[in-house]
Design a protein around this nucleic acid. Sequence first.
DNA 1: TCGTAACAATGAAACGATTCAACGACGGCG
DNA 2: CGCCGTCGTTGAATCGTTTCATTGTTACGA
Lengths: 341, 341
Amino acid sequence: MSRAASIKDVATHAQVAVGTVSNVLNNPDRVSKRTKDRVLQAIDELGFVRNDAARQLRAGHSRTIGVVVLDVGNPFFTSLVRAAEDAAAMNGSAVLLGDSGHDANRESHYIDLFQEQRVQGLLISPVGDVADRLEALRQRGVPTVLVDRRADEDRFSSVSVDDDAGGYLAARHLLDLGRRKLAFVGGPLSIRQVSDRLLGARRAVDEVDGATLEILDSDGQSVLAGRGLGNSLVDRGAGDMPDGIFCANDLLALGVMQSLTMMNGVRIPEDVALIGYDDIDFAVSAVVPLSSIRQPTDAIGRTAIELLTEELDAQHPQHRAVVFTPELVVRHSTAGADAPH
Amino acid sequence: MSRAASIKDVATHAQVAVGTVSNVLNNPDRVSKRTKDRVLQAIDELGFVRNDAARQLRAGHSRTIGVVVLDVGNPFFTSLVRAAEDAAAMNGSAVLLGDSGHDANRESHYIDLFQEQRVQGLLISPVGDVADRLEALRQRGVPTVLVDRRADEDRFSSVSVDDDAGGYLAARHLLDLGRRKLAFVGGPLSIRQVSDRLLGARRAVDEVDGATLEILDSDGQSVLAGRGLGNSLVDRGAGDMPDGIFCANDLLALGVMQSLTMMNGVRIPEDVALIGYDDIDFAVSAVVPLSSIRQPTDAIGRTAIELLTEELDAQHPQHRAVVFTPELVVRHSTAGADAPH
DNA sequence: TCGTAACAATGAAACGATTCAACGACGGCG
DNA sequence: CGCCGTCGTTGAATCGTTTCATTGTTACGA
């Protein structure tokens, strides 16, 4: 329980100056083998471990990067975190993780915290309006890369997916199957990803005569929320059911699917065609394998880190907005079946 | 891009001493309203943000706790991380996250890193043999709580689940259905959780005359690995198939299920009864809703943090080993069906 | 009017690492 | 023999905060 050994203790023990110990650690070639060995032995004997706080106080910044995600439970962000971790580990730094849970207050709290920690850079998938705060950070030399949200290229780099295009893809696919009475399940619409997907879907529907799009606002993005919405759909009776449903994410879609097929005997895709978004691993192993819109998650994570690294290295970095295009994955939940009747 | 404002800059700007600024921040009541307002205004004008490195250098420790998990992608750990985050946020600290990916080297790397960061405490789900390193940490006043591994109570607190009991539950359930030719799917067996589950299963099988247990070692814990093993099972021909399969986790089980039902026409549970482990969210929405063994993940996360907090607060903490008992969840993949024939 | 509490504010010391100007020892060269 | 350059080592200064003994101010009671 005794106080941890400092570089000074090591110096005393090895009978050298503190500067020499520091050199052994940071510039080994400047030190003769004899003294180096002696110092290393002292370090070993005392179990000395560098105090990073002192280091970064001197250096003016830490060796961590901050990552603020909307939800660590979401596979999309999990993959981002993993990519960030790997990249950080490469150059001996670590990741400070914050889960905002779609809550602007928590998000703000994490930005504060990370700023106090003097993170080198920030990866954030923003909830609230944080542009000003991030701008302030940027001016102090802390670059930020926005994830899953397109940014003004003058100020930040960003990596995002074209959600409008994804929404269009999904709705268009349902329409191509001959479905006309579509429903969009997702919410809250205040989340930009959700509203963009809806926008794209609306665009597709507007292109086809006689096609309609009903909006079912869910409060949450969970399987449970989807199940609830599915039940309320069934309660309306068969005549009033849509024949194509587009869910803003796969969890919702799986919930809707459970409700319709398992609890209420609605056939997918015969009665209702169903498509989700994100193409999570489990989409393929659902009751009815789920069609979905795939986002290149790994590429997004890698790219985000690349952009951040660029900004960290360059003096006057070019900001870049990388936009990935999502991809339609057709499975049984929309496959082959013609429109009902 | 100018250097960040320090407490000294604030002091100058507000025309007070540095100690006063510090007091405004840490002991507001000791400062008169007049000066406090002046200081706060200066802080605002300069955009001053505390430098936590200096703070913790003085304090001797950081305000972070380290969490090392086997795999952030695993929902079990995700829930742990979330619990840790919430608890940390409560008292103004943050979580440093490390994903060891079942790799002892990476694990060791993270312990080093976190030690340099002077984390207040450590939550770890260990891969390699790290007892000595953790013991060294403990002696320096950095408490550790082991997650998902039972620890010697003299040295560490731990939170775990009785995997042997879980394995027994699963196998016993299959035997109770009348199945006799069981297979255990999981690996690598070097992972203690996996081998314990196998041990429990073996115990159950040994209790029943004429029951056999075949071991299918998988190299990985993914849906894909499960699918591969499922395919190789089918290749052996119908006569050589087990009639009950116990998978060491749900991902494997879902993979096996996909392979058997969708690609090879084997009926679950009629031909083969299947049970997984972990009861992840998706178990219920599989092609055939999957029976599983549920671990109380939230309680585990919360308890881990509680134990850590206890150790942080107490001078001479009692170490405690909390063991949760898993629970059988019966769904269609093992439901009702009698043995084949 | 003086003494003394109570309260505010001060500023130097300490935390532990890194950096860098300065120093000593040594060898080679003229 | 003296000069110079190289190499290895030294130790003081620095980073930004907190802490705490000290000083200054005010008000109040004797």
